[in-house]
């Protein structure tokens, strides 16, 4: 398993390089240009000069190589400088966004806290709700609990977050006035009052996202449990006089986790990717809204960098999922 992990990690390097190349050319090939952000009142010659100063007219391979150097060399040096107060990266050009004309990584740094806080909590809440619901629904298949769970999950999944989010705002903010509609990213938790405020402003976005996440995960959990429930080993375990608790939670659950682990592992990178619509709706302004803003403004360095970090996380978590498969089911061997 260890050699497998190491081999996969090594293999990840060429994979990621290839992904970065594909992303770069894809974004470059896409129609549209950062010029769409410039008002029509700006005359064409000024427009051309602005684009020139962004370096957009250089050939695509030059920009790609420059980006590679900046991502793997300049930015890590900058990170070291920031941590230890050294000045290795002085005078080196960092990855600069077209839109903000500032370093992409400082924007990512600003965005990470609220993304992790809000989207991460929502994901955690989703998983914590979904797994027990899935297990119990499967255990008591076609009971009223299962039917209600199915109905809720299907509604949760078929109703897009732009709808459920707006609905929550209208009910809880406009009508009841309990929660704010806009997330305050400058809020620092120092005492009880600010903590309450933080919880309040997180409630609506977490509810919106948590519902959507829980819906999908609980479906996979339930179906996988059902699939295993009918197997002979379950009958054997029961026949041996094991308690229902042990049978369900130890034997069946462990064997049912593979698809669920896959779904959860696929979902974790998307925490970093943020939830574009929910973030936008509540003004959380995390990574997701940065990405969509960059895509709309054709901010190539920003899209490229964010998409690439996202790719790293996906490769990493898929590796973790593969390792987990082996732990859950020792029969799975990769060597």
């Amino acid at each position: 398993m260890l050699t497998y992990t190491l081999r996969r990690l090594l293999l990840a390097i060429p994979t990621l390089l290839l992904i970065s190349l594909v992303i770069f050319f894809l974004v470059d090939l896409a129609p549209g240009s950062p010029a769409s952000e410039i008002p029509l009142t700006v005359p064409p010659d000024v427009r051309a000069k602005i684009l020139e100063s962004m370096g957009i007219n250089q050939p695509v391979y030059v920009r790609y190589l420059l980006w590679l150097k900046q991502f793997f060399y300049v930015e890590p040096l900058n990170g070291i400088d920031a941590l230890f107060g050294t000045s290795f990266a002085d005078g080196m050009q960092r990855i600069i966004s077209y839109q903000t004309r500032g370093p992409v990584f400082s924007l990512i740094g600003e965005r990470i806290p609220q993304t992790l806080k809000v989207i991460g909590t929502a994901y955690l809440v989703g998983v914590l709700i979904a797994v027990p619901i899935g297990i119990y629904s499967a255990y008591r298949q076609y009971s009223w609990f299962d039917q209600a769970g199915t109905l809720l999950a299907m509604i949760g999944f078929s109703v897009p977050t732009f709808f459920s989010g707006t609905l929550l705002i209208i009910i809880f903010s406009v009508m009841l006035g309990w929660f704010p509609t806009k997330y305050d990213t400058t809020l620092v938790v120092t005492d009880w009052a600010s903590f309450v405020k933080q919880i309040k402003q997180m409630t609506l976005p977490v509810m919106t996202l948590g519902l959507a996440n829980a819906a999908a995960i609980s479906r996979y959990m339930r179906s996988s449990m059902l699939e295993n429930m009918g197997h002979d080993y379950v009958r054997t375990a029961r026949a041996k006089g094991m308690s229902e608790r042990t049978v369900v939670l130890k034997h069946v659950l462990r064997n049912s986790m593979i698809p669920v682990v896959t779904v959860i592992a696929l979902g974790i990178p998307s925490i970093f990717g943020g939830a574009i619509i929910t973030e936008n709706l509540f003004g959380v302004n995390g990574i997701g809204s940065a990405l969509i803003g960059a895509i709309h403004g054709n901010d190539l360095p920003m899209v490229q960098t964010l998409a690439f970090i996202f790719a790293i996380l996906i490769v990493l978590f898929n590796l973790i999922a593969d390792v987990l498969y082996g732990l859950l089911d020792p029969r799975i061997r990769y060597d």
């Binding site: 994979t15 594909v22 992303i23 974004v27 895509i295 790719a311 996906i314």
Partner: peptide, 11 residues
């Protein structure tokens, strides 16, 4: 699969 998962959808 990893690559397709990583590609930004809208572009």
């Amino acid at each position: 699969t990893d690559m397709f998962l990583a590609l930004p959808l809208i572009p």
